[in-house]
Write a protein that binds this DNA or RNA. Structure first.
Lengths: 338, 338
DNA sequence: ACGGTAGTGGTTACCGCTAACACGATCCGG
DNA sequence: CCGGATCGTGTTAGCGGTAACCACTACCGT
């Protein structure tokens, strides 16, 4: 089409030449249109289109020490639960002209530290971290950088800065209470590995708290820790029934475990809740479509993303200051499986 | 701890002062350690740790006109199919010290253009686009930028640059053939909206091609277009059975449609494939756990991500040049539902 | 008619880093 | 023992923008 060799980036200079103004005027026409005369603005806009100019934000950010990039660290991208939160973040950021960088920590604090270091290197304007446990070095780096941070894996007692989440403890407690109210007495509890993340630990504490409140003993035979995944749910079902705790209900507090277990019951022709009741922790669409539909918690996944982005932008754009904790609500969805 | 006010970024200068060398030497010690004497290198490394220096890649990229950021545009983040590809990309990039920026196009070419523009503004080193239809302006911008691009939604006849995908056409054709081989003759076909993306169109062409090959007529009563989602699968099942085409099998060529339909059959107590056979298009774990397990295609989602990142890096790091099409294989997983 | 004052647009000096080159020291073969 | 390669480090000049400041031109009320 045109004679420019590919890769020959168009600079503001080129726009300035075509519009017959200085580069500073081009800069202003693009960032503060109201500060240049309508006539010049039109000339600049025309020139921008003519030469196909795309402003270099690396240069812009370096010069103004203002960035429009947000860094997000999630344990895993390949998980629909986080996907929903990411979508929420992304939606809000785009509306405000910000960009999103993503890294996954693989559930490890060292990998998280590496991701944070990389993001700080890119001089992100803010961070959103799903995990709430960080290496001391990571914390130090963030402090040094002085940028706002949102943690959103769980409500945490020692926030780095801002927190947007729901209480994993309260949610697990609420569901356990719900089962107790339905007269289940031997409630099994399955989590993801406790060592790996605070969320699982919070959930287990909530489960224990509800039992204690009801004056029931904590029976180790009723409690299990398994890796994520459908197959693990099946395995958990088997192991729990074999352990001798004789559960009348099982509360699967992680990922897709409940789905695996529920489907396995279908496969074996077991009545649910006749043989054993099943409750889940996630608001995965699917749970409502199983036979029977599975009781679960509605968690504000998408809203966590939205609100996280919002509070971050509020800080970045100077509309707010200081720590902040947003406690989003969850809700029990009672269905046929209990 | 230390007296620095937060936000007072540590610059290379500061490291240089502490290590008693020039900034250039610090730069070298970090990027080309072998070009610096071991003694000086150690002093620099010590100083970096001491002052908590995190290199500013904005400045670095600006100066060297080399970026380590890759931009990815997917139709939607909130979809486990893309999530798996994203994870693949992310894994490879991290290993090579590159960063990932993500935007979603919401299945629209204009939104894609906006995302591409934003990424070019960040001077990304390369782009990965899931969609294969783009606005002319988007194409022009990419050409002008002269950066490598990978498209990975489907094998496309007119690639922008590189393509890493499988053939949606061939995959749909293979599954239709598979059903024909199993003696199904009235095969229903459900897709996502054809207007929205080329992938759906390719799949439908594949379905039609298999029918034609078998000498069977194309019956419009057997073909349906629905939005994504579990509920849509249920709806499709109903509408297809009501349409009078009398299907003996239904091939759901999109998202989680098949799951919705299969669960609905379970709910109604219909034998599958007795009442109607069901085939799906995605390798979602779950399909194998349903009752009966659902026949489907294994698609190289994760590998698409991995390979996309790899070919992109090959180009960026000068190990390869020129257009390239990588045709990844799919596989039929025959299970109880057919 | 004058200083005051918006309102516009240009000039200069960086932002933090790196390419390219310059320079002195050491090393080498002939 | 000298000329040229080699090594290690410093100097200079930007990369492409923007902040801060300055200069110029209306236009104002008194």
């Amino acid at each position: 089409m045109d004679g420019d060799p590919p890769g020959a980036a168009v600079r503001m200079r080129d726009v300035a030449r075509v519009a017959e103004v200085s580069t500073m005027t081009v800069s202003r026409a693009l960032k503060h249109p109201e500060r240049v005369s309508p006539e010049v603005r039109a000339r600049v806009e025309q020139a921008v289109r003519e030469v196909g100019y795309v402003p270099n934000r690396l240069a812009g950010s370096l010069s103004s020490s203002r960035s429009n990039v947000i860094g997000l660290v999630v344990p895993s991208i390949d998980n629909s639960l986080f996907a929903s939160t990411i979508q929420g973040i992304s939606d809000v950021l785009r509306r405000h002209g910000h960009e999103l960088m993503i890294a996954s920590s693989g559930y490890g604090a060292e990998a998280e530290e590496a991701a944070i270091r990389a993001f700080l290197g890119q001089r992100v304007a803010g961070l959103i971290l799903h995990d709430t446990t960080h290496t001391p070095e990571a914390v130090a780096m963030i402090r040094r950088a002085g940028i706002p941070v949102v943690e959103n894996g769980t409500l945490t007692r020692q926030p780095l800065d801002m927190v947007v989440s729901y209480s994993n403890h309260d949610a697990a407690m609420a569901m356990t209470r719900h089962l107790l109210r339905l007269r289940y007495r031997r409630i099994g509890f399955v989590t993801l590995p406790l060592a790996a993340n605070g969320r699982s630990r919070d959930r287990r504490r909530g489960y224990a708290a509800a039992l204690e409140e009801a004056g029931l003993p904590f029976d180790p035979r009723l409690v299990l820790e398994v890796p994520p995944g459908l197959a693990a749910g099946v395995e958990a079902l088997d192991r729990l029934l074999a352990a001798g705790g004789d559960p009348d209900a099982i509360f699967f507090a992680g990922d897709v475990l409940a789905i695996g277990a529920a489907l396995e019951c279908t496969r074996r022709g077991w009545p649910v809740p006749g043989r054993v009741a099943i409750a889940a922790f996630d608001n995965i669409d699917l749970l409502g479509h199983l036979v029977p539909p599975v009781t679960t918690l509605r968690l504000p996944r998408h809203e966590i993303g939205r609100r996280s982005a919002e509070v971050l932008l509020d800080r970045i754009e100077g509309r707010a200051a200081g720590p902040l904790t947003v406690d989003l609500r969850f809700e029990i969805i009672h269905r046929g499986s209990t």
